[in-house]
Design a protein around this nucleic acid. Sequence first.
DNA 1: CCTGTCACG
DNA 2: GACGTACGTGACAGGG
Length: 937
Amino acid sequence: MAFGKGHHLHLIDGSAFIFRAYHALPPLTRKSDGLPVGAVSGFSNMLYRYIEGNTGPDAPTHAAVIFDYSGKSFRNDIYPQYKANRPPAPEDLIPQFPLTRDATRAFNISCIEVEGFEADDIIATLSCQARDAGARVTIISSDKDLMQLIGDGVEMLDPMKNKRIDSDGVAEKFGVGPQRVVDVQALAGDSVDNVPGAPGIGIKTAALLINEYGDLDTLLSRASEIKQPKRRESLINNEELIRISRDLVKLDCDMDLDFTLDSLEVKGPDADQLVEFLAKMEFRTMVKRATERYGVEAPDLPDASASASGAAPQTQSAVPETKPFDLDAYEHIRDMGALERWIDDIYERGYVAVDTETMGLDAMQVDLVGVSMCVEAGKACYIPLTHKAGDDDLFGGDSLVEGQLPLDLVIDTLRPMLQDPSIMKIGQNMKYDAKIFARYDVTVAPYDDTMLLSYALHAGLHNHGMDALSERYLNHTPIPTKELLGSGKSMITFDKVEIGKAVRYAAEDADITLRLWQIFKPKLHAEQVTTVYETLERPLSPVLTQMERNGIKVDRDVLSRMSNNFAQKMAGLEAEIQELAGQEFNVGSPKQLGEILFDKLELPGGKKGKTGAYATGVDILEDLAAEGHELPARVMDWRQLSKLKSTYTDALQTFINPDTGRVHTSYIQTGAVTGRMSSSDPNLQNIPVRSEEGRKIRQAFVADSGKKLISLDYSQIELRILAHVAKIDSLKQAFKDGHDIHAMTASEMFDVPIEGMDPMVRRQAKAINFGVIYGISGFGLARNLRIPRKEAQGFIDRYFERFPGIKEYMDETVAFAKEHKYVETLFGRKIHTPEIAAKGPQAGFAKRAAINAPIQGTAADIIRRAMIRMPDAIADLPAKMLLQVHDELIFEVDGNACDAVIEAVKDVMENAAEPAVHLDVPIEVDAGIGDNWAEAH
DNA sequence: CCTGTCACG
DNA sequence: GACGTACGTGACAGGG
């Protein structure tokens, strides 16, 4: 029978249940692995009681639990600040959200969430549909926003007070009937959801006004008739805001849903499924209750009495590293039967550690040699695929070794598992493996990465390479790569490794990875960095994978012409320099140069470093050149050209991928402790721009034919963050007014008007502004500005006098670091500062690093958030994201779509901090378009 | 493999 | 009173 008259639909507000469960219960964790499950437990309990309590004639025939989809809803498009002052969900609640969905399904109740919509809208749509079909509806929630739906057979049930609410109940609460609830809410606003409303008007006044004028539109059109001046002004001055508020509180009854009300029919729990879920969560009481109630067999649960009865605690899963490594126990997979058994096992467990072995380190070029997997500590395997004998046959190719499955067959067999959303893949630096697999048409997802886990947990404490992590956390030294492949000229590729050795090495890596995961994953909650890992690290990795695969086109001819040009100029300079020196020597050797300058020519200022060599850095050469010495000036010219040639125009050519004609850098997500990334092979984050000569190198980075490069960069983002975190009103105001921030600083400090300011004065203020971000010192500023140290210190003193908040911020940050041994960004990223308590010169370093890290790190977090949202934002546009340079993103775009892309990207970048963090300063992004990077920047 | 130098934000 | 200092990176050449 189709849904309609005589049916009774229950719509349960799931999110309300979760938060109530979370706050009502003490923090509870799953015994076996420490996963927080308190809210899941409370939620499950509520569902259990709900089901048990709903028997008899009034029982629902149809039911659904509705959840909020995480992230923004369409309301944020209407009003960006909507719900902006909501604090983020508690750290230990976040991992429980998906589990509450699992719980709902385990109870065999429909579980509904829709991206871009709030639970309230889904409830509204379903309740309208059911009402129109002639059925009864009960909304189980205590959220007053849902009261507008009441009437015509729709009621609410407040689960807290167990009280039914009908039209009379609504009138009691809002002073108007359900049809006018939206009008009252639009006027009164809501501080919890950040709905603005009309200032000075609350629910009581709003109801009074609506009752007098009939509805909101009439009220607004006749606002001038209101006698009380305050009310009248508030309504007239905020008409637009009130209308926006109405759009915000009005629920959407016309959503397109891809299921029918029929599908929500109540079927009653499937006992086996329910008990299995409860057992997995280790909810002993509920398992007992459910098994007894439904008469099914209880599954095995980890022994709970062990620690309670005083016996030795079980260490098996809590401390997996205590299980010794046995390299000979690893399995060599040589037939399909074994492979199928492994895949079955993986499906049963729901996760697997994976590692690839390849011909080299360039993931865009090298071929796969084998794959290793691990499902529990000590249980690992290796699937060799293309190991070769090294016995050149007549055709110059090596023959495949025995005991290997065909590569295509293995890939096709693994692909469904590697792509299965229900199987968690675990890797160490999985971006590399994902890139390898991508070349075989496998999109690995979802995945956890032990390197990223360690980074979220331990930034500042140590590096996150697998060997180091294994030593530190597993007390185990892995087989060194050198031992397997050798090094230097005689190094072999992995396909030449004898299979027996390869099994031990490769499977060991997967084993280590799995064990690290078992330690790190639960540690996220303990260290309060789950959100950092889940929102800033894990989702970024696939984005980087795609960017690296995109690559950027580089014009070899442009580079090679520049190289020749540089070579000629350098030869000329070299001759000139040796003429001046009166002898031949290697200009590129700082040691030889120092001897020429200070021993032979006896120039002043020779200082020897700890190695006994003269220092010949650019600052020293500059001093000498300033005194009129020709040779050091020419050496400076030579060095600039040498740098440009060797590092850029020569080296970049070798990175052009022969298959794609493009350069594919590799981003190291864990590259900088602050949260910044680094780029390598080649480093595309340090392509010259400051000097005229060097900037030309950017002309070699070009758009493909018919396309353009566009570059968007954050304008002074670190200074804006400083203004926000240090709460400097004058700086904030200057940014809001769009003033020249360095000129404003100069004006404050030196009491000079901004109009007609001496550029030198502005330059000094700019240097101070940057110095502040770096944890300023008189010496550093003096060196940068080339002024006496006393004078620099005077500037700093004056600066702190004018901006006392900055000094306060710096002192507070250092104090925080000393107390906690870490500092954190606005998004909760922790940067550990173990050196902060040190005595001696390191102390100064640590202090400045601690001051800088939250600022640099917050900026890094913001652009990460933008990058994570970018694939969705440009999904329907002909654009590809290619590069990130700390505060800049570079895209390649079809020529006619540049404006549309800029608009979309700008929007994402400028709002990237929201809704997690709302800055008191505007974030601004500048954009440029060109056929090459020099033009676009 | 380490150091000095220099390219970037 | 002396000492040594801007923050964060990666690549290259020279030299042991």
